[in-house]
Structure formats: structure tokens, C-alpha cells
Design a protein around this nucleic acid. Structure first.
Length: 425
RNA sequence: GGAGAGGUGGCAGAGUGGUCGAAUGCGCUCGACUUGAAAUCGAGUGUACCGAAAGGUACCGAGGGUUCGAAUCCCUCCCUCUCCGCCA
């Protein structure tokens, strides 16, 4: 949620920054805010009078006055008048607040001043490339789903029978490979200082709202209608809400978490795209990195988060590049995002395998996640950051393709061999 | 799923209609005493919103209601605990 106070004080600036990612009209917000505060003043004055009346009646009664004492009678009458007025104002104010909140929840985060300007993904900026020396030499590389089906480790047809299209079943060494990758990634991130958590995979509406998936992107998540529960689209959701409505102490910060979870996405509106393989499934696994940090450190923490995600690709010797998203391509909650894109030789393209974002106080505000500095008055919102470290399915497809041998077998990256107990598929 | 008990400040725990944002204890902060510490004594110690400030308002699980006045009474919901049932 954007900072209403900041918007009030500096509407032009906020408006201008938001404009770099699309059209958002903030004037209704300012107008509702003005009306709401006006009502609030009036209401709280009435409330004050009502409290005073209540107090006076109490004093009178205590000093022995009868309930039918004329002064008590007249105070009661006034109390009733005040109550009548309040019962008009209160719902009005509530309604304004609800309207304001509803609009605010649909406004995306304000891009960082350092985020490159641009309309869409074509204007993203390549920051670096890594691992050119590991680019596969052979030219006749099959797509990973063909490799996987030939090896008998992936099955899409039966998965459609079990569930639908865009699901996969892993068999034998395929299942083991996935498990090995999860273990490798968790081990590495834990060694890098992240605390592993394994959260619920069903999350409530408040949790999805806190991290920014709701209210705007309801179509993207699977919902269990009877229970106000949703299948989590990313571990970012449960981990954000792990500390929802908490006041942390500043010396607990930063908090670094990693979480392995399945992720469920409806992929509405992408029917034609990536219909084959492991790239775009309704269910996939991911190891997520997540940080709750002091605002002063969030930019530095963003860089180390990126490095921690990159370390996995480097360990697996998978060629990749780092892209910085431009303002027009930024995710809803993010102020600044780096995508890691891994080389997929069958399509001759780099494909997103991780997205590392600094959400600053946007999610903290929605989730009411604050911290208190000893000796300082009041509380501040933490900054939150998240990034994949990494998406498992996409990592598997990258391994199958980049490590494919001319004879159709697949070499296992050195670092993964001890986890898998074999060096070739 | 059935029956019962309960949700109060950082924690423990009082408060069953009146000046209660809330006793008391612990904790924490500052000060005194002490060579230092412990113990003891004194003062302080929630958050949010509105306001330039003075100050005001709200918050005792959440939402509604009764009342001049609700932590306290009524209704609905959520959560926790105990017993029974079911189950990995």
C-alpha cells in the first residue's frame, strides 16, 4: 500500500512516479481522504461530548442523585441527541474509509528512483551475463520435455488425466532430481544464513492481500470456496504473513528466511504460451528467499539477495543473465526488480528462473509489519524483499537441456551428484 | 463433528454497568544507595488516528446491539485449551 501521508504531502511526486508504470489517477484518493478527515474531526468532537455526558451522569449518580433528577434527565436527553447525530456520522465515515481502503489496495507500488524507465518488457535492461563458457556446444538440442519423456522421467499425458493440462508427474530419477535440487538449494541458502521455514500451502484472503496478490489478481489463484482459503501462488505469501500484525524489535532485524513450497497458479490469460514442458505449470515447486529488514539496509540487502539466488545457477554452472525490470514491467508490489534468466538452448532464449524484488514498505504496510527501535518513540514499517532461489521446474528444464549429451543422455552437474547419487541420466 | 472452559497491556493476573487505557506483580528504562553487582527505594514505561500545539478520539480476540455511559450485559463470528468421535 502506498503511503497516504506521503501522497497527501507530495501528490505530484507520487503521481509522477506511478505514471512511469501506467495510468493511475490518485485524485479520488485525495478527495476521499479529505472528506474522511473532515468527518473524523466532527465525529470525534461529538464523541468527546458524549463521553463528558456519560461522566457527568456517573458523578451525579455516585453522589446520590436519583435517576429522575432533572439534571440527569436533561443530560440523558442531550446524550440521546448526540447519539442520534453520531449514528448518522459513523456509518458515513466508515463507508468513506472502506472506499479509500478499497482504492488504495488496487494502487501498485511506486517504482524506485533508480528503476529504469520503460513501457514494457522490451525496455528492460540487461545488467550482466554469466557462464558463456558453459553454453552447450552441440547444436541439435532437444526441448527438455522430449528429453524427459524419452528418459521416462517426465509424464504430461497421464498428468492431464489425473488433473488437467499444465501438470506434470515426475518418475524415478526425475522425482529424485527434483528432490535433490530442493535439498541443494535449501542447503546452500541455509548456509548463507537463511532460516528455513515450511509454511502452510493454503492461505487466507488477508495473507494474499498483504503481499499484494489480492484484490487485483484473484483470477491468478486457485480458491477453496467454502473455506476462505487459497492455494498459495508463491511462498512469498505465507512468509510475508508469518510476521503479519507484529511489531518486531530492531535488533531482530534483518530476518532472512528461505522456504520450499509448491506454488499454484491458474495462469489465466496465458493459454497459448509455453503449452509444453515444465515452464508454465499450474503447480510447480520453488525455494523462495525472503527478508524482513531495516529500511536503511534494504538496498544493500537486495543486492545480496540477488547474489544468493545467482549462487545457485553458478553452482549448477547454468548460463544466465541478470535483467533489471523497467518501470512498466515491474510487479505490483515491487519498487525494483532483478530477474535472473537461464539459458534454454532448445528455444535459443533466456527464460526467467528467479525474480528478486525490493518491496520496501509496501507489503509491510498492507500486512502491518512494523519494528520498534529501542529508545525511539513509535514504530516504523519494515522493508520486505523476496526472490526465488530458484524455481525448481525451470531449473530442471535448464539442466536437461544444457547438460544433454550427443547420445541422448544427460550429464548431472558436479555439485548435484552427491545429492542424486549418480552422474548421468 | 459433539460437549465444556476461556481469550484483558511485553508477560502474569485483577476487574461483572459509571470518572477504567485499565489495580497489583514481574519485566524494561532512568535515578538514588553501592568500589562493582545483587537486594532495596523513587520516577517512568502501549499503539494508531486527527491537530501547529494544547488537546481530542479509538483500541480489553473481531464485528454488531442494548444504555446517558460497556472490559463488564446481549447476538454473531474467529481463535485457544480440555474431554469424546474420526484420522496421518
Amino acid at each position: 500500500m502506498i503511503d497516504l501521508k506521503q501522497l497527501r504531502e507530495n501528490p505530484e511526486h507520487v503521481q509522477a512516479r506511478l505514471k512511469t508504470r501506467g495510468e493511475f489517477d490518485l485524485t479520488p484518493i485525495l478527495e476521499l481522504d479529505r472528506q474522511q478527515r473532515e468527518l473524523e474531526v466532527e465525529r470525534s468532537q461529538l464523541q468527546a461530548r458524549s463521553n463528558e455526558i456519560g461522566k457527568r451522569v456517573g458523578q451525579k449518580m455516585k453522589s446520590g442523585a436519583k435517576p429522575d433528577d432533572p439534571e440527569i434527565q436533561s443530560l440523558r436527553d442531550e446524550g440521546n441527541d448526540v447519539k442520534a447525530k453520531l449514528s448518522e456520522l459513523e456509518p458515513q465515515e466508515k463507508d468513506l474509509k472502506a472506499q479509500l481502503e478499497a482504492i488504495l489496495l488496487t494502487i501498485p507500488n511506486v517504482p524506485s528512483d533508480t528503476t529504469p524507465l520503460g513501457k514494457n518488457e522490451d525496455e528492460n535492461v540487461e545488467v550482466k551475463r554469466w557462464g558463456d563458457e558453459y553454453l552447450p556446444k552441440n547444436s541439435d538440442i532437444l526441448p527438455h520435455w522430449e528429453i524427459g519423456e524419452t528418459l521416462g522421467i517426465l509424464n504430461f499425458e497421464r498428468s492431464a488425466r489425473i488433473a488437467q493440462s499444465r501438470f506434470v508427474t515426475l518418475i524415478g530419477a526425475g522425482a529424485a532430481l527434483e528432490r535433490a535440487l530442493i535439498q541443494l538449494m535449501l542447503d546452500k541458502q541455509i548456509a548463507a544464513g537463511y532460516t528455513e521455514i515450511s509454511p502452510p500451502y493454503l492461505v487466507n484472503t488477508a495473507s494474499l492481500t498483504a503481499s499484494g496478490q489480492l484484490p487485483k489478481f484473484a483470477d491468478e489463484s486457485f480458491k477453496c470456496d467454502r473455506d476462505d482459503l487459497w492455494l498459495t501462488p508463491t511462498a512469498e505469501v505465507p512468509v510475508t504473513s508469518f510476521h503479519r500484525d507484529e511489531v518486531l524489535s530492531s535488533d531482530e532485524l534483518p530476518k532472512h528466511y528461505c522456504a520450499y513450497t509448491p506454488c499454484f497458479r491458474r495462469e489465466a490469460g496465458s493459454y497459448g504460451r509455453d503449452t509444453r514442458g515444465l515452464i508454465r505449470l499450474h503447480q510447480f515447486n520453488k525455494v523462495e528467499l525472503y527478508k524482513f529488514v531495516h529500511p536503511d539496509t534494504s538496498e544493500a540487502e537486495h543486492q545480496t539477495l540477488l547474489r544468493d539466488a545467482e549462487a545457485i545457477l553458478q553452482a549448477l554452472k547454468l548460463p544466465y543473465r541478470v535483467i533489471e525490470l523497467c518501470t512498466g514491467d515491474l510487479g505490483f508490489s515491487s519498487t525494483k526488480t532483478y530477474d535472473l534468466e537461464v539459458w534454454l538452448p532448445s528455444s535459443g532464449k533466456y527464460r526467467e528462473i528467479s525474480s528478486c524484488s525490493n518491496c520496501k514498505d509496501f507489503q509491510a504496510r498492507r500486512g502491518n509489519i512494523r519494528f520498534k527501535e529501542a529508545g525511539k518513540k513509535g514504530t516504523q514499517f519494515v522493508h520486505t524483499l523476496n526472490g526465488s532461489g530458484l524455481a525448481i521446474g525451470r531449473t530442471m528444464s535448464a539442466i536437461l537441456e544444457n547438460y544433454q549429451q550427443p547420445d541422448g543422455t544427460v550429464q548431472i552437474p558436479d555439485v548435484l551428484q552427491p545429492y542424486l547419487g549418480r552422474d548421468v541420466l
